[in-house]
Amino acid sequence: MHELGIVFHIIDSVEKVAADNRLEKVSAVVLELGEVSGVVPEYLTDCWRWAASKSPLVEGSALKIEPLAAVTHCDNCGKEYSTVIHGKTCPYCQSGSTWLLTGNEVNIKEIEAY
């Protein structure tokens, strides 16, 4: 149900962009999805199929998901590492002063329209 809310927000944004660019029909929406965004791609596409059918602008359009790797930066040793494998603790120096560089994105990258 979390994904459904996100889908509504995507459609909302797409409708705005379409109005600004005078698009009448969208054929695909390309989404960048971070590995640790907490959004499940399969649920998202399921919700998309249902919700898109309610909006004439995006009805029948595809949601293309491009995964983005999650990378964490360590302030202590300055190195970067995979968040999914190592989590919050730096594998090089065991420091906990780390922060997520990329990986929590839910971005609309582009819209394909006729």
Partner: peptide, 16 residues
């Protein structure tokens, strides 16, 4: 049918 147009958005879903 016209060629498919691509509109770059690069915007977080949460931006709105």
């Amino acid at each position: 049918m016209d060629r498919v147009k691509i509109i770059e958005v690069k915007q977080s879903v949460f931006a709105n």
